[in-house]
Design a protein around this nucleic acid. Structure first.
Lengths: 252, 252
DNA sequence: GTACTAAATTGATCTATATCATTTTGGTGC
DNA sequence: GCACCAAAATGATATAGATCAATTTAGTAC
């Protein structure tokens, strides 16, 4: 698709899960097995469970669900990235998380009904598996280990959300952004020769909405980081050149 | 204990769960039944489960556990209030939550070992039940409904934590404080003649650490609220006189 | 290569809130 | 009633980061 021979600078991001892409059953199984709450299961059990999931492909920017919608599904990212956000009345978006393959999201309201409290959107082209909550409840009852694993994952989510609260109330914008870059490197980093490319289309606005600041402030911080040789960046992409310096900004 | 006959102004807070107080078995059972993850169980099953919990009484200010400690217990507040917080290196505390009776806290790390990522402290004199994680795991395996209930409670915690993130990044200090007052009224409000007393000792510093601001700013906001007749307040206590005005501050 | 456009940058203010420094006061113990 | 003291309030000032307003530029399409 990309006739890469120009020396002209184009986006270094790969065009993953592009249009017309289809999530194969194989991919489904492999990826679902990766998700930690299924990782203890036998292969044949896993195969059975996979059948109960439906795969859907989304293009970058597609809405997966919208806050306020009735919540009937639990979802798992198998390829690409999804973003969880809250829109506020004043039009200020808050990005709660960017999910990498293996992460679950959606609802866990197994009894009674519920409504999504956040929206989900395809950050890149992505494949998402979904399962109805009734089906998932059956799985839980059959395989208690799944329940225990998901309980821990959800505790982990709470923890990282609390960490975010701490950061917002105690750290400067620069520190918060440095921290976000580290987290994204962990989740989406792809090591190139002399740098680590964050394999994810994301703009200054995304970054600002994650850090709880404005695009302008995010831009200023990123400009400085680039001047200091810590990162290399273009439109919608960032590569980390000196992760140690980022760490030292966050540490202290 | 309190020879209440003076017209002198004293703290309107009750001296609940005072020194030497002892949590009775009855209290344990009643209160534990209230906790939503046990509320579906039969009485005799509940009785069995209660036996596996240990009750401990803490005095106001006591440390329940400290961040970094190995995490072996799941706990439930049965009386009084406990505070979850993170201490930062620079000495800025962040209050993550104030827990009322019926709330659980501590660890849910059922496999492997873990370390507390926050500290817990008795906000008032309080009774706390605790159960070892191994025991709790057995309960989970025996009663799947408990697992499902706790999964939902933990999803709910995540949600309120995300709401906090939204507030921190989009709302003013005044709005955040108004919101905290509403939440505390919900959890600890006790209706008096013309006002609702928040039955909980908590200082401007606690409030500031909850709102992600400074004691001075919190104090200024509270002074204004008092001038406008929205609240009545003294040392370590607040009563709400006009909850509608608080709501309207938060709404818009 | 040229034209085009949304993303990103940069600069000049403005402002909410932090910070620093006192003073005042609520509540207790005597 | 009076003394005491930490909590709370208040005032003056500083500042990080928001806001407003242009430019510049990266990347795409042709």
């Amino acid at each position: 698709m990309q006739v890469a021979m120009a020396k002209r600078k184009t986006t270094p991001l790969k065009d993953f899960a592009p249009d017309g892409h289809h999530c194969s059953l194989d991919l489904k199984t492999t990826k679902l097995g990766m998700v930690s709450f299924f990782q203890d299961l036998e292969q044949d059990v896993l195969d059975e469970i996979v059948k109960r999931f439906t795969a859907t492909h989304y293009r970058e920017g597609d809405e997966i669900y919208y806050q306020g919608d009735p919540a009937h599904y639990l979802r798992v990212v198998v390829d690409g990235a999804a973003k969880l956000l809250r829109y506020t009345d004043e039009g200020k978006d808050v990005v709660l998380d960017i999910l990498n393959p293996g992460s679950y999201f959606g609802s866990l309201k197994l009894l009674g009904s519920d409504v999504y409290t956040e929206s989900a959107e395809a950050q890149s082209g992505c494949c998402i598996l979904s399962i109805g909550l009734k089906d998932f409840r059956e799985i839980l009852q059959e395989y208690p280990s799944v329940g225990i694993a998901i309980l821990e994952m959800s505790a982990e989510k709470l923890r990282s959300s609390q960490e975010q609260i701490k950061q917002l109330t105690t750290e400067s914008v620069e520190t918060r952004i440095a921290n976000i870059l580290l987290i994204l490197t962990d989740k989406f980093g792809e090591v190139k020769e002399d740098k680590t490319l964050i394999q994810l289309p994301f703009s200054r606005k995304d970054l600002a909405d994650m850090a709880g600041t404005t695009t302008e402030s995010a831009s200023r911080v990123m400009s400085n980081f680039q001047k200091e040789g810590i990162i290399e960046t273009g439109r919608q992409w960032v590569a980390i050149k000196n992760i140690e310096m980022l760490r030292s900004i966050v540490e202290h």
